Amino acid sequence: MSEDRSLADSRWQRAFDILAVIGPPLTVATALLVYFGWARTDAQAKAMGFDVSLLGYSVQDLVLRSIPSLFVPLVWLLIASVLWLATDTFLGGQRTAGHRTAQIRWFAMLVMAAGAATAVATWLVMILQPERTLLYVPYVMAAGVLLAAWGLSLWRRSSARRGPNFLAGPRGLERTLVFTLVTLLLFWGTADYAQALGRRLAVSYEERSGLLPTAVVYSRDRLGISAPNVLEDSTGTAGKELYKYSGLRLLVVSGGRIFLLHDGWTLRNGKVVVLPDNPSVRIEYGNPESK
C-alpha cells in the first residue's frame, strides 16, 4: 500500500515539475502575443486617426492577429531552442561519461563571457547612442543574458567542486532575476517591433485602400458623412426618405462598430468613418473591382 502511495506521489511530483518548467514560458508567450497584438493595433489606429479602444478587440482577437506577424520569428525561436537543448544534452552526456571535462568548462566560460559581453555592449549602445538603436537590440540583449546564464549553469555542472551547498542558496533568486530580466527585454522589443509594424500597416492602407471591399451605406436618417469623395444621394420618397452614401471602403467590423475608409484615403487627409453595426443602417459590400 505504501509503495502504491509512493508511486502516486512520484507521478504527481513529475507532473508538477513539468508544469513548473512549461508553465512560465507558456504564460510569457501568451502575454507577449496579447501585448504584441494590442501594441500593433494601437500604433496602427493612432496613425489612422482614431483610438484603439473603439475597435473593441477581445484577447482572442489580439492573439489571432499576432500569430501571422510572429509566425516566422516563433519558428526561428523554436529552432534555436531545439539546437540549444541538443547541445546541452550532448555536453551533459559528455560530462557524465567523464570525457572532455576541461574542454566543456572552457566552452562554458567562453559562452558566459560572450553572452555577458553582448548584453553589456548592447546596453551601452542604447545608453550612449539611443538614436542609432535598432528594433532588434532588446532581443540581442535578451539572447546575451540567456547565453551568460547557460554558460554559468554549464560551468557549475562541469566544475569539480560538487559540494551539495555550492552556490545552492541564491540559485532560485538568480533564476527569478534572469527570467524577469529576459521577460522585460522581450516585452520591450515586442513593443518597438509591434509599433513599427502597426505604423507600416497604416501606410499600407494608404497604398492599397482601392483594394478594400466597396461599401454602400443606406440609412433612414441623414448621417452627414463629410469625408472626401463620399457621395450622398436621396433615393426614397417624399414621405419616406432613404439616404445613400457611396465612395466608401470596408476597413473592419469589430466591437459593434463598422469602420470605413473613403476613396482616395491618405494618412495626412483621410478620415475613418465609424458607424454602428445595427439595423439603423444597411450596408451593401462588393468586390473592389465593382463600382
Results as ranks from 00 to 15, higher is better:
80 A>E: 02
80 A>G: 15
82 V>S: 03
83 L>D: 04
84 W>Y: 10
88 D>K: 06
88 D>W: 05
89 T>F: 09
89 T>Y: 03
90 F>M: 06
92 G>I: 01
92 G>E: 06
93 G>I: 10
94 Q>S: 09
95 R>D: 12
95 R>E: 11
96 T>Q: 12
96 T>M: 06
96 T>V: 14
96 T>Y: 09
96 T>E: 10
98 G>R: 08
98 G>E: 07
102 A>Q: 12
102 A>F: 06
102 A>P: 00
102 A>H: 05
105 R>H: 07
106 W>N: 13
107 F>I: 13
107 F>Q: 03
108 A>P: 06
108 A>N: 09
109 M>Y: 10
110 L>T: 15
110 L>S: 15
110 L>I: 10
112 M>L: 12
112 M>N: 08
112 M>R: 09
113 A>D: 06
113 A>R: 12
113 A>T: 15
115 G>Y: 03
116 A>D: 04
116 A>M: 13
116 A>C: 09
118 T>Q: 13
119 A>M: 11
120 V>A: 15
120 V>E: 04
120 V>P: 06
121 A>F: 07
122 T>N: 09
122 T>P: 01
122 T>W: 08
124 L>G: 08
124 L>I: 14
124 L>S: 10
125 V>M: 10
125 V>E: 13
125 V>D: 10
126 M>E: 13
126 M>V: 14
128 L>A: 15
129 Q>M: 14
129 Q>D: 15
130 P>V: 07
130 P>K: 11
130 P>E: 03
132 R>Q: 14
132 R>M: 12
134 L>N: 14
135 L>T: 15
135 L>K: 03
136 Y>E: 07
136 Y>P: 02
137 V>M: 06
138 P>L: 11
138 P>E: 03
139 Y>G: 04
139 Y>K: 00
139 Y>S: 03
139 Y>I: 06
140 V>K: 03
141 M>R: 10
142 A>C: 08
142 A>H: 02
142 A>V: 01
143 A>M: 10
144 G>C: 03
144 G>W: 00
147 L>M: 12
148 A>V: 00
148 A>T: 04
148 A>R: 00
149 A>K: 01
149 A>H: 07
150 W>M: 10
150 W>C: 10
151 G>E: 00
152 L>Y: 04
152 L>N: 09
152 L>I: 01
152 L>T: 01
153 S>N: 07
153 S>E: 01
